Amino acid sequence: MSHKQIYYSDKYDDEEFEYRHVMLPKDIAKLVPKTHLMSESEWRNLGVQQSQGWVHYMIHEPEPHILLFRRPLPKKPKK
């Protein structure tokens, strides 16, 4: 599979999560399941490479070739 064609967005966040999206080329996108969110082993098997802790959290129906990921931000110590 062509890992060079996978595009990784910059990371962005809110108060709770860090987010990123990953755009897959058409040949890989056709392998994305339409019935469920992928486990880490499933998206890694497609060639997506990112650190541990990312969760495929949403399917964007109009653009199924874009995978939406998030992971919890580290808890800030209370002052």
Results as ranks from 00 to 15, higher is better:
52 Q>D: 11
3 H>I: 15
28 I>K: 13
73 L>Q: 05
49 Q>T: 10
3 H>W: 11
13 D>I: 15
37 L>D: 00
46 L>N: 00
1 M>K: 14
29 A>Y: 05
60 H>Q: 07
25 P>F: 00
57 Y>W: 09
19 Y>N: 01
37 L>C: 09
36 H>K: 10
54 W>C: 05
55 V>H: 06
36 H>I: 02
15 E>Q: 11
7 Y>T: 14
6 I>W: 08
10 D>C: 07
35 T>W: 05
41 S>Y: 11
77 P>I: 14
48 V>E: 01
10 D>M: 07
56 H>S: 01
18 E>M: 04
34 K>E: 08
74 P>C: 11
10 D>Y: 07
38 M>R: 02
42 E>Q: 11
18 E>T: 08
52 Q>C: 12
9 S>Y: 12
12 Y>Q: 13
50 Q>C: 09
73 L>N: 05
16 E>A: 13
28 I>Y: 09
66 I>C: 07
26 K>A: 12
16 E>P: 03
21 H>K: 15
43 W>L: 05
64 P>N: 09
58 M>C: 09
3 H>T: 10
10 D>F: 00
66 I>R: 07
7 Y>S: 11
56 H>A: 01
16 E>F: 13
45 N>T: 10
64 P>S: 10
7 Y>W: 08
63 E>A: 10
19 Y>T: 02
75 K>T: 12
37 L>Y: 02
33 P>M: 03
20 R>Q: 12
23 M>K: 11
43 W>H: 03
65 H>F: 09
63 E>S: 11
6 I>K: 07
19 Y>P: 01
57 Y>M: 04
40 E>H: 04
72 P>T: 08
38 M>L: 09
20 R>S: 05
67 L>T: 01
16 E>H: 14
39 S>P: 06
24 L>A: 01
11 K>W: 09
77 P>E: 13
25 P>E: 05
50 Q>F: 13
57 Y>E: 04
79 K>D: 14
13 D>F: 14
22 V>F: 01
1 M>W: 12
18 E>P: 00
23 M>G: 07
47 G>K: 00
68 L>N: 05
15 E>Y: 13
13 D>C: 15
63 E>G: 07
74 P>W: 09
9 S>M: 11
54 W>V: 01
9 S>C: 10
32 V>M: 03
15 E>D: 15
76 K>L: 11
10 D>V: 08
56 H>R: 03
54 W>G: 03
68 L>W: 11
52 Q>Y: 08
15 E>T: 06
35 T>Q: 12
53 G>V: 02
58 M>A: 14
40 E>F: 06
15 E>W: 15
35 T>N: 15
17 F>C: 02
16 E>G: 10
36 H>T: 08
5 Q>I: 15
42 E>T: 06
45 N>A: 14
55 V>C: 09
79 K>V: 14
38 M>I: 00
34 K>G: 08
35 T>E: 12
35 T>K: 13
51 S>T: 08
9 S>F: 14
6 I>F: 11
26 K>Y: 09
66 I>K: 10
40 E>I: 06
61 E>N: 10
7 Y>N: 13
79 K>L: 12
34 K>D: 06
2 S>T: 15
47 G>P: 00
19 Y>M: 01
63 E>D: 14
8 Y>A: 04
32 V>T: 05
6 I>G: 04
7 Y>K: 15
24 L>K: 01
24 L>C: 05
23 M>A: 11
66 I>Y: 03
32 V>G: 02
38 M>T: 03
39 S>K: 09
63 E>N: 14
79 K>Q: 14
62 P>R: 15
28 I>P: 00
53 G>P: 03
41 S>V: 12
5 Q>F: 13
49 Q>I: 14
76 K>P: 11
79 K>C: 13
57 Y>Q: 02
58 M>D: 10
38 M>F: 03
25 P>H: 06
32 V>L: 04
43 W>Q: 06
27 D>Q: 11
16 E>K: 13
71 R>F: 00
17 F>P: 06
62 P>H: 15
10 D>E: 15
22 V>G: 04
11 K>A: 13
39 S>C: 10
70 R>F: 00
44 R>F: 08
33 P>V: 01
10 D>T: 14
8 Y>E: 01
32 V>R: 04
62 P>I: 13
31 L>P: 07
41 S>E: 14
62 P>F: 13
74 P>M: 12
50 Q>K: 01
63 E>T: 10
49 Q>G: 05
59 I>Y: 14
51 S>K: 06
47 G>C: 02
79 K>Y: 11
58 M>H: 10
66 I>W: 05
4 K>G: 05
48 V>K: 01
65 H>V: 04
50 Q>I: 14
33 P>H: 02
36 H>M: 07
78 K>R: 12
11 K>M: 12
47 G>W: 06
1 M>E: 14
43 W>K: 03
54 W>H: 00
61 E>F: 08
